[in-house]
Amino acid sequence: MAERYDLIVIGAGPAGLAAAIYASRARIKTLVVDESVPGGQVKTTHKVSNYPGFPEDISGKELANAMAMQATRFGTRLAKAVEITSHDLSGKEKRLVLDEEEEVVAPAVIVATGAKPRELGLPGESRFKGRGISWCATCDGAYFDGKDLHVVGGGNSAVEESLFLTQFARSVTIIHQFEEFQAEPASVHEALENPKIRTLLAHEPRAFHGETTLERIEVEDLRSKERKVLPTEGVFIFVGMQPRTDILKPYVQLAPGGYVETNDSMETAVPGLYAAGDLRVKRFRQITTAVADGTIAALAAQKYLKGHK
């Protein structure tokens, strides 16, 4: 027998958890499912300095846990480390199978699956995944005690995570394609002042080399077009995100880049199917904007559910 909910939220990042907080406070029977533990991208962000309400920096994991606790306090059921093994989100009654065994149904679903770190798509990259190449400084930074590392990217994540990596590494060289960083000036200033951080601007990686583990990174100087092969003991990649919208593919036409279009109420083209957070077509993707999306989606779903009953 399928367990019935009013609302199922897929993804327990800031968008999904904000939606769950609003929905469960409105006495909507809410289930949140996530493939991992709660927090989405926030849980592996070592510190968050721009989320209102926290005058001191807060660790991403603490913020994520606080949001999850707030949602469950109001009655949300949070299913962690669960895989959605089949789904039908097209009809009036939306249906999900969890871990090939548990069936859940609800008239409204909010997809808040966010985005995952983008890969470069370069030769050697997948071969050295977990063998010298990483996308998570929080998880893997400690593996690189006393090592000489490279970071690829020039946005907030690249610069802030480079600063975090200096706790472990002997040196961190940031490779960035442009002449200037795109990160917030405050972080850039802090990074440039840090004696362990070096920069390689107007350079792009081209390939990764090594025997069984990563040993060298090949870069191109974009000004001279000259290629160089540099020894490295580890590479962290922070070059933006790609939306996790696979689950929506059967139901909606995705926009270029794989993002999903919604209206102002976070509704997709399918009645009762909402999208909130970083997977949406929008200009800015922040924790604050994800939380706003989740709020709107939950309020819109609440209205929809009233009409549905």
């Binding site: 493939e35 991992s36 592996t44 962690k80 480390a81 871990d99 929080t138 400690a142 593996y143």
Partner: peptide, 17 residues
């Protein structure tokens, strides 16, 4: 596995199952 590793926490229940 490592400590301070949310993906490790996420894997643990799947691994056990």
């Amino acid at each position: 596995y490592s400590t301070e590793c949310p993906p490790c926490e996420a894997l643990a229940p799947k691994f056990e199952s």
